[in-house]
Design a protein around this nucleic acid. Sequence first.
DNA 1: CAGTGGTCTAGACCACGCG
DNA 2: GCGTGGTCTAGACCACTGC
Lengths: 252, 252
Amino acid sequence: MTDQDSARRPKYQRIADELRDAIRSGDFAPGDRLPGENDLMATYEVARMTARQALSVLRTEGLAEARKGAGVFVRVFRPLRRRGIPRLAGDHWGGGRSVWSADVEDRELVVDRIEVGEAEAGARVAEALDLPPGAPVCVRSRRFVLDDKPVLLSVSYLPADLARGTRITERDTGPGGTYARLAELGRRPVRFREEIRCRMPTAEESEGLALELGTPVVLIDRTAFTEAGVAVELNEMTLDSSSYVLEYDFGA
Amino acid sequence: MTDQDSARRPKYQRIADELRDAIRSGDFAPGDRLPGENDLMATYEVARMTARQALSVLRTEGLAEARKGAGVFVRVFRPLRRRGIPRLAGDHWGGGRSVWSADVEDRELVVDRIEVGEAEAGARVAEALDLPPGAPVCVRSRRFVLDDKPVLLSVSYLPADLARGTRITERDTGPGGTYARLAELGRRPVRFREEIRCRMPTAEESEGLALELGTPVVLIDRTAFTEAGVAVELNEMTLDSSSYVLEYDFGA
DNA sequence: CAGTGGTCTAGACCACGCG
DNA sequence: GCGTGGTCTAGACCACTGC
């Protein structure tokens, strides 16, 4: 009766299917504990590794997370909405607020792992900023942590001759951030290009964003241009995909 | 000598690290065959499952793919560039071309699994189209296959009272596609909102897009609005993330 | 300290694909 | 046909968590 209909589908997949259905149907709500390895071994009369493999399917699908010594739990999602276009409107950061204040509202935002320095432009950076390869660039990297969860890694590149001697090279760039400083230099960014990619994280990204198994990252490469069409900044962002919904509004 | 520096890192991780480094450094180029399970067992003197686990790390990272009976290979990427904004400019589809011709250029595009029908709006569709829940909607679903690789699943919803009696309810919507028909009805879409999410695929998505292990999907929900601000279409798209780079250009 | 998940071994049989 | 990866078993020891 129970294994007559197995129909060539591997046991671990069938177990995963049942658990997945139970999650989707609401039998297990976000945050609930799922049956553990021992439970599955008993219920389905399978070996340890088979039960493990079933759970690993759900984890790599991003549906479940394992907590050592505690159990396996249904994952909880609470994505942030990131509005691609109005957030960069001049009247946001122009008024002394960072572009971030548009996103986070009443949640607790911490910026850490701030590093500022100078380096030689690699091929990609040089091309984006229209500089000769090896040209000096100001590099600003930082991490954004929202309610104790890291959500974004950001590395920003600017031509060094533009940034030197300004607060852009300091840890705190001042009110309105880098874009306000650029505006003061007569290089106000008015046009932007964002390129979006998505893939599984590297080990470093996984560590830096404290990612669960089965969580992709979103890469946003934003180039900022002045009215004259000169690229003044390349910002490479790495987002925890489970923490974000991106939104773009535009006319035809 | 070889395991003195193991430093608590699991064997399978150390093996995966070495292979990953070899890939990144170019010792294995895209498409190359990697050492198989038996090779790793011999080289590192580990059990089968340990070698397997090492390879599975690379696969879930999206760096390698297994071909049954053949071996494990370094994955090859050739993403399409999808320009979010100019592709929807009226002069593209207005001239009788589909919005797709902007993306694919000289590659072979096949559209299959076309289904057109009517259904009752679920909660999300009803909200997006500003209809009462359960209202009849026209549903158009299809799959785009580029050079024999499926890259996008699309399901489009329109208010049924708008679509009925037009070519929108036929398999072939005619020159310029759905948007050109809407324009003829006096409901020309002029504003768009795209919401972007990213996650691991469900089993159905994985099948429909023929995804490798370790390949996330990108979800784009696009709502089209008329000049009067009325939502006339919701298009839910599911993309193979390894096949796409999304691009958005906009001013501040 | 009892139970959990994490790692690892040493076997087995199978289906598939390439030569 | 032989080697490949895919599935599965029945054990083992460990580290961590929570009671």
